[in-house]
Amino acid sequence: MRKALGLFAFLAFVLFLFAATISLRPFGEPPHAEMDSYFIEHAQEEASANNVVTSVVFDYRGFDTLGEATVLFTAVSGVLMALRHYGGKEK
């Protein structure tokens, strides 16, 4: 009974997903591109890099990348903490 109810809710959710997909804007025509065209035009003089994605990641959104590096460090220490009981003394 519970499983049938869950399946029904899941099917309703999938139906909603497909309705949303069909009524979405057409693929390949982003409506708001002002910020990105500013990046593309000014990345070479402001960030001094040919690769616009790199200049967005490391220059315009540098704080984001700093937080991301911190997340990686936290994950490594979390794995070490979770498995330390079984490993003994090495690492």
Partner: peptide
């Protein structure tokens, strides 16, 4: 060329390679 972007690339690359390798090394050794 690139200014600080090249230095940041090198430092982030060092960090990512050390992090991923140590995750797999911990799993392997344990």
């Amino acid at each position: 060329t690139g200014g600080t972007l090249s230095y940041l690339n090198i430092f982030v690359g060092t960090k990512v390679l050390a992090g991923l390798t140590s995750i797999v090394l911990i799993f392997f050794l344990i």
